[in-house]
């Protein structure tokens, strides 16, 4: 049964999604942050974060998600992530003393690696989400014709 007033799937799916989407998001963030001491890391966590957004979009229709994160903003966030990674790499050879991606700061337990993980998580989650968005919006355009 489709609810005609509100886009998206049925009430059951929406209620369950309300509960789970946030949990999936938090689990993704957890995976990103513990990447340097165990299995996980930026890529895996980023994929999970993107999946939570995709989940929301499937359940509530695209407008709900697009209001918060549209394509242009996603592109900007993902390229910011990539730039941040490159800048972190350049931090290594400040003043041309050490090579690219060299460890400079001895903090926490793993140096810069957690920060790399976070940056990659941002890059991957937004990148994966905008690819999904691009494909979905492409078919949306075709249906309108």
């Amino acid at each position: 049964m489709k609810n005609k007033e509100a886009p998206g799937m049925s009430l059951i799916v929406k209620s369950v999604t309300r509960l789970t989407a946030g949990l999936i998001l938090i689990y993704g963030i957890y995976i990103v942050f513990r990447g340097h001491i165990g299995p996980g890391g930026g890529f895996a966590g980023g994929v999970i974060i993107a999946l939570s957004l995709v989940h929301l979009m499937l359940a509530f229709g695209k407008d709900v998600v697009l209001k918060r994160l549209d394509e242009a903003r996603g592109i900007i966030i993902s390229s910011l992530g990539a730039l941040a990674f490159l800048i972190l790499g350049i931090v290594g050879f400040l003043g041309f003393k050490a090579p690219f991606l060299k460890e400079r700061f001895e903090h926490f337990s793993a140096g810069l690696i957690p920060i790399y993980d976070v940056v990659i998580g941002v890059l991957v989650s937004s990148g994966l989400f905008i690819t999904f968005l691009a494909l979905v919006l492409l078919t949306g355009k075709r249906e309108k014709k």
């Binding site: 900007i76 910011l80 730039l83 790499g89 350049i90 690219f100």
Partner: peptide, 21 residues
Amino acid sequence: MKLLIFFSLIPLFTAFLIVLL
């Protein structure tokens, strides 16, 4: 030679910078 890495670093940097700017 410190400059070698710049050959792939500069275009990569530019690629993402163009997206922002």
